[in-house]
Nucleic acid binder design. Structure first.
Lengths: 173, 173
DNA sequence: CCCAACTGATCTTGTTTCGCAAGCAGTTGG
DNA sequence: CCAACTGCTTGCGAAACAAGATCAGTTGGG
């Protein structure tokens, strides 16, 4: 966790923290899936992370200051994980990755729609989403904007594609 | 390399391609260090990649269409690796990572200066650098701009910090 | 021609990490 | 009292990683 670094290069240091196959997926689920509990993160993602890996990554991300943890008052063993400001600012990295993957890799339609919208929305949309995350995870009040939030718009678009695909499948057979 | 994917999520797919500790560092060296040969990549970076890992990653990146390889006419065994358009478009991801690392991690002064400039320059500067890379790696002609290129400016800034640090060390002892 | 230096790349041998399944102790609600 | 749930750990086989020696082919100086 805290050995000596391979080099002082910012890209290398970033990779040492989140440069594995799972950390950013956990962050992704926290941002786009609004998952805050261990079990939600464990079973929620399509990829199916192992419980020991998840526990280890949560520990690492906690130590790195990317997420924080507090007890859930509703259950003595339950913890609520939140993104810190540092974690929220990983969003642009995720957005760029989503955009690149959307452009060059065999992305599924329903999971690609968010990437498409984020790309079209650009940094301005990312900033708005980050503000929404600050409200949700850090409790920072913000000026309410007109219309649905970015998070809601992404979620709605996703649901719409899922519904359309379901109808399509139904028609086929 | 081409097994079944864990999911159709664009972020996950991107991570499956470049989500390890070395691939993006190789791309980084090709972009910012202008390293194009196996030996340059092997010995050039501060982190010290093993030869077998490098060979494997080059193979993977080649298969993924992120880099290309052609024979060096000066030596029958020598190969020149170039970034493809797909590889060049990884730059925004690297830039965001560099910016995040610069902000939150213990980046060394001389290696951080590039991240700082890239952050200040923003997407416009990235686009210009990508155009320069297209000229170098893809042979695409471009309109010559006035003054030094982005690549040259980054390199010059790096050299300046190194020189300043050297002088500082010399003064100290 | 001969050989040392160089080319990209592989083999060998450990060590670390990963990934899946099962299991753990404590908590909750019925 | 007990089944379902909480976060989390353990065991173990598989895969990835890391360091160094080694490989065959190429090149150029002597």
């Amino acid at each position: 966790m805290s050995d000596i670094h391979r080099s002082g290069c910012p890209i290398n240091l970033t990779l040492e923290v989140v440069g594995d196959k799972w950390s950013l997926l956990i962050i992704r689920d926290m941002i786009f899936g609004n998952r805050r509990h261990y079990r939600e993160l464990l079973g929620g993602s399509e990829e199916g992370i192992s419980s020991n890996i998840l526990a280890d990554r949560l520990k690492t991300l906690l130590a790195a200051g990317i997420i924080s943890r507090e007890d859930d008052p509703s259950h003595k063993q339950k913890g609520i994980y939140s993104l810190t400001e540092q974690g929220i600012e990983l969003l642009p990295i995720l957005a760029q990755m989503a955009g690149w993957g959307y452009k060059y890799l065999p992305v599924s339609e329903e999971l690609g729609i968010r990437a498409k919208l984020l790309m079209e929305g650009g940094p301005k949309m990312w900033a708005e989403l980050m503000d929404e995350l600050r409200e949700i995870h850090l409790g920072v009040k913000r000026r309410r904007k007109a219309g649905p939030s970015v998070g809601e718009r992404l979620q709605a678009a996703y649901q719409k594609v899922v519904a359309a695909k379901k109808a399509q499948t139904g028609k086929d057979r």
